[in-house]
Amino acid sequence: MSLLSTNEGFPETSLTLVRRLHSTDDSLRAEAIGLVARRYWLPLYDFSRRTGMSEPAAADAVQDFFHHIVSNVDGFANYDGQQGRLRTWIITIFRRRLSSSIARQQTQIRGGGVEHVSLDFVLAESSYQEHAEQDQNDPERAFDRAFARQLWQQVLDSLRCAYTYRQRLTVFETLQPLILCEMKNQPLSSVELAEKAGLPSIVDFKVSLHRLRKEAAHEFQRLVQQMVAGDDWQEEVRYLLRLVG
Results as ranks from 00 to 15, higher is better:
67 H>M: 12
231 D>P: 00
175 L>C: 07
226 Q>L: 01
144 D>T: 01
17 L>W: 01
35 L>I: 06
3 L>W: 08
186 Q>S: 12
149 R>M: 09
237 V>D: 03
46 D>W: 02
20 R>Y: 11
191 V>T: 13
235 E>P: 02
179 I>H: 06
29 R>E: 04
152 W>Q: 07
204 D>A: 14
225 Q>R: 15
213 R>T: 08
61 A>K: 04
173 E>I: 08
141 R>F: 02
77 A>F: 07
125 E>S: 10
128 Y>N: 07
146 A>R: 06
6 T>I: 09
63 Q>N: 15
54 S>I: 13
153 Q>K: 14
153 Q>N: 14
59 A>Y: 01
7 N>D: 12
211 R>D: 14
153 Q>W: 13
49 R>N: 08
163 Y>F: 15
11 P>A: 09
179 I>C: 10
19 R>P: 00
132 A>Q: 15
145 R>P: 05
120 D>N: 15
92 T>L: 10
41 W>H: 12
188 L>S: 14
59 A>F: 01
35 L>N: 01
171 V>F: 06
31 E>T: 08
34 G>M: 10
54 S>Y: 13
59 A>M: 02
200 P>E: 05
233 W>K: 03
136 Q>C: 03
52 G>M: 11
212 L>K: 05
124 A>T: 00
170 T>H: 11
245 G>T: 07
144 D>W: 01
23 S>K: 07
150 Q>K: 10
18 V>G: 05
85 R>N: 08
192 E>S: 15
148 A>C: 10
79 Y>R: 08
179 I>R: 07
237 V>K: 04
85 R>F: 13
210 H>K: 11
206 K>S: 11
195 E>A: 09
217 A>F: 09
59 A>I: 01
34 G>S: 12
159 L>K: 02
184 K>I: 14
81 G>A: 07
145 R>C: 03
165 Y>R: 13
108 Q>S: 05
123 L>C: 10
96 R>D: 11
94 F>T: 05
83 Q>R: 11
115 E>N: 12
14 S>G: 09
148 A>Q: 07
23 S>P: 03
59 A>L: 02
224 V>Q: 05
59 A>N: 04
186 Q>M: 12
75 G>C: 01
36 V>E: 04
96 R>Y: 08
80 D>E: 08
239 Y>V: 04
226 Q>V: 07
29 R>Y: 00
40 Y>K: 03
36 V>H: 01
108 Q>V: 05
230 G>N: 13
213 R>Q: 07
135 D>P: 00
73 V>P: 07
86 L>H: 02
160 R>G: 03
124 A>G: 05
229 A>G: 13
129 Q>P: 00
105 Q>A: 15
217 A>R: 08
22 H>N: 05
237 V>P: 06
95 R>H: 01
186 Q>L: 05
51 T>D: 08
93 I>K: 12
85 R>M: 14
220 F>V: 07
126 S>L: 10
203 V>K: 10
34 G>C: 04
233 W>Y: 14
36 V>K: 00
27 S>R: 13
163 Y>E: 04
197 A>V: 08
76 F>I: 03
132 A>F: 12
133 E>K: 05
106 Q>A: 11
216 A>W: 02
42 L>F: 06
14 S>W: 03
148 A>W: 03
189 S>N: 13
